[in-house]
């Protein structure tokens, strides 16, 4: 239901993104999806990748401010309107989405998100029989 996401703390200064990417390259980590959220001062670079636990360890050893966190990963049919349907389910249950991004995997849309109440979100996913992916679905890039 959830997968590991890497979050890297980044300063808004040229050269910081490339530094993180070079480290991932050196460790032969495949980036599957990523997004940068920014404020005026700093940003958080969030990444779904092939081996998040190893990537986390190696980035940490290199002195990078990095966190590993569980995010929900819902699988949707690749057609218009499915994201709206999924988010509606959560919204009707009174849940808020803190952030969200998406990508395509094996012809399916994957919605990555965090909510304000993870336990409640789990219940909603089970109750509504929503499909989700797990870490092993990403291991084909290992």
């Amino acid at each position: 239901m959830t997968i590991n996401q890497l979050s890297i703390f980044m300063e808004n200064r040229s050269g910081t993104l490339i530094k993180a990417l070079e480290l991932m390259k050196k460790s032969k980590i495949q980036i599957i999806a990523s997004t940068i959220a920014d404020t005026a001062e700093y940003g958080i670079y969030r990444i779904i990748c092939s081996e998040p636990t190893r990537a986390y360890k190696e980035l940490k050893e290199a002195g990078v401010a990095v966190a590993l966190s569980d995010v929900f990963a819902i699988e949707l049919d690749d057609e218009p309107g499915r994201a709206a349907d999924a988010v509606r389910t959560f919204s009707d249950a009174g849940l808020s989405i803190t952030y969200m991004y998406s990508f395509l995997l094996n012809g399916k849309g994957i919605l990555i998100f965090r909510t304000n109440d993870n336990e409640h979100a789990r219940e909603v996913i089970i109750l509504n029989n929503l499909k989700f992916i797990s870490e092993s679905d990403l291991s084909q890039w290992k």
């Binding site: 703390f9 959220a37 404020t39 958080i44 969030r46 940490k60 401010a65 966190s69």
Partner: peptide
């Protein structure tokens, strides 16, 4: 430092 969490 490394106490960083993914939370704005």
């Amino acid at each position: 430092n490394q106490m960083f969490t993914d939370d704005f």
